[in-house]
């Protein structure tokens, strides 16, 4: 069974490297639509990592929400952007240096904290099971849950109020 100890981590790291490559492609591609496609693949890759780590519920929700819903929204936004029809127009600008500086500052803040945290490995995390998650939402976290539903309801009503024609 030694071979599994080898294949498991090796494929896992290979997989993560692939996701990183896709993520870099997402931000460096000049064509906005291609960026969106690479972003979809990156998100699917993250979902696959969840499946790999036996957090199936999280993986399923990741695909359902990020790939199914948010990517559709992103694609709609791209579609409604003017001048998208002409592929010769560059669809990104040249502000690499400011972006790099801002990100470096963020990384300066985040990386020490990530290194400091001791990542405890728990055998099976309770929050990854759908049943436990549902029971927690309905008992311990019922107030935040209800609050979020009120916010969503307000957003829904607001959207209808904005979209309806004046009659």
């Amino acid at each position: 069974m030694d071979i599994f100890g080898l294949i498991g981590p090796a494929s896992f790291y290979g997989f993560m490297a692939g996701i990183l490559v896709l993520a870099v492609l997402t931000v460096t591609t000049r064509n906005l639509f291609h960026s969106a496609i690479f972003l979809a693949f990156t998100l699917i890759g993250v979902a696959c990592i969840y499946f790999f780590l036996r957090a199936e519920f999280l993986g399923g929700v990741q695909i359902l929400l990020y790939v199914g819903a948010i990517m559709t929204l992103v694609i709609f936004a791209i579609m409604l952007t003017a001048k998208m029809g002409d592929p010769s127009i560059p669809q990104s600008n040249r502000q690499r240096l400011p972006v790099f500086l801002a990100l470096a500052a963020l990384a300066f803040l985040l990386v020490p904290q990530i290194v400091k945290t001791s990542w405890k490995v728990v055998e099976s995390l309770k929050t990854t099971s759908a049943v436990e998650l549902g029971q927690a939402l309905m008992s311990e976290f019922v107030l935040p849950f209800e609050l979020i539903s009120i916010v969503l309801l307000a957003a829904l009503i607001g959207a209808i109020a904005i979209a309806r024609s004046d009659q």
Binding site: A40, I44, E56, G59, G60, I63, L64, V67, A130
Partner: peptide
Amino acid sequence: SIGILFFLALSST
């Protein structure tokens, strides 16, 4: 363990 959810998630992509 998420069979039906897996189906719904995939068909949404």
